[in-house]
Design a protein around this nucleic acid. Structure first.
Length: 300
DNA sequence: CGATTCCCCTGATAGC
DNA sequence: TGCTATCAGGGGAATC
């Protein structure tokens, strides 16, 4: 089976949470960059910016992995000076921001593990392990930001709400009202509209709710909006539980493949029978993206 | 402002 | 066999 699964919210969540349990608390002891165009600083400065930093958290926003760093020396000095300034500590936080785009992988490995083709960045940690960034298509990136730079990054992207983070049905209704003329599928893929959904999960959500991908958001019936909301919650949560979907390109932080691929009902199933009605799933192009759906269950 | 198109890149695949 | 053309796709940039 040759399913090209790109990292979306569940996959990125799996990578971030998997990494967190291994690398939080460790320091960065070495940095090697083989493909400088994937980073945002000159390699020497990038390396210098990271050396000695301690990893304090790993989290996800939209499809982006955020590794929080602290400069231990400065934090220790503030503590020693007995300054009661938590806000100051916050200002000193620095960030590694990683986007996997289509084919990126971020893996926690032993130094002895063979360096696979397309490994572009190797970060050595204080326990001797490696954090390696691979990306066959070179669309991904790894960026270093100080607090201000990170704030700018977030501001420039203006990501929409996280669908699983206190996002209610009425939030979804209101959001849809803001873009009544947009086709629903491209809207689900728009990261400024809602964060983290990509081509696979968008198709699965629309299939679940029996909604045609070209339907304008403003023409969705209330029951369709509700079904999309419920489907979004169920599908994304189930996919996280199953460690995402993966077959070939995407591997989680421990190198283990995800299991959600078993539950996929529409995506990449062109010509195969719809699991609800038996009709063949069709594929159309919307913009330059494929959309897979059942023409009978998801009528226009 | 929103919608659309092009482009980054490599590897799989088709056609000859 | 081995070449070349085509395609896939997240999202940024340019264009209308």
């Amino acid at each position: 089976m040759k399913l090209k699964v790109m990292p979306e919210l569940p996959e990125v969540e799996t990578v971030a949470s998997g990494l967190a349990k291994h690398i939080v608390g460790l320091k960065i002891t070495d940095v090697r960059v083989n493909l400088p165009k994937l980073i945002n600083l000159k390699p020497a400065l990038f390396r210098k910016s990271l050396l000695g930093r301690r990893i304090t958290a790993v989290r996800r926003r939209a499809k982006v992995i955020i590794i929080e760093l602290s400069r231990s020396k400065r934090i220790e000095r503030i503590k020693r000076n007995n300054l009661n300034q938590i806000n100051r500590l916050d200002q000193l936080t620095e960030y590694l921001v990683i986007h996997l785009k289509m084919s990126g992988q971020l893996m926690y490995l032993r130094p002895a593990d063979s360096v696979q083709k397309h490994t572009h960045i190797i970060i050595t940690l204080s326990n001797g392990r490696h954090l390696r960034f691979r990306d066959q298509r070179q669309f991904g990136y790894v960026r270093f930001y100080d607090r201000a730079g990170f704030e700018s990054f977030l501001a420039e992207h203006s990501f929409g709400p996280e669908p699983l983070d206190g996002f209610s049905l009425s939030d979804f209704r209101e959001l849809l009202k803001s873009r009544p003329h947009s086709k629903i599928k491209p809207l689900l893929l728009d990261q400024t509209f809602i964060a983290g959904i990509g081509n696979l999960y968008a198709d699965e959500i629309l299939f679940y709710a029996r909604v045609h991908p070209l339907k304008p958001a403003g023409r969705l019936k209330p029951v369709e909006v509700k079904d999309m909301y419920v489907g979004m919650q169920k599908i994304l949560r189930k996919a996280i539980k199953e460690r995402g979907s993966s077959v070939e390109l995407y591997v989680d932080a421990d190198g283990r493949p995800g299991n959600y691929v078993r539950y996929i009902k529409a995506y990449d199933r062109e010509g195969k029978p719809c699991l609800k009605c038996g009709r063949k799933i069709i594929r159309i192009k919307i913009g330059s993206r494929s959309a897979y759906f059942c023409p009978k269950c998801q009528p226009r």
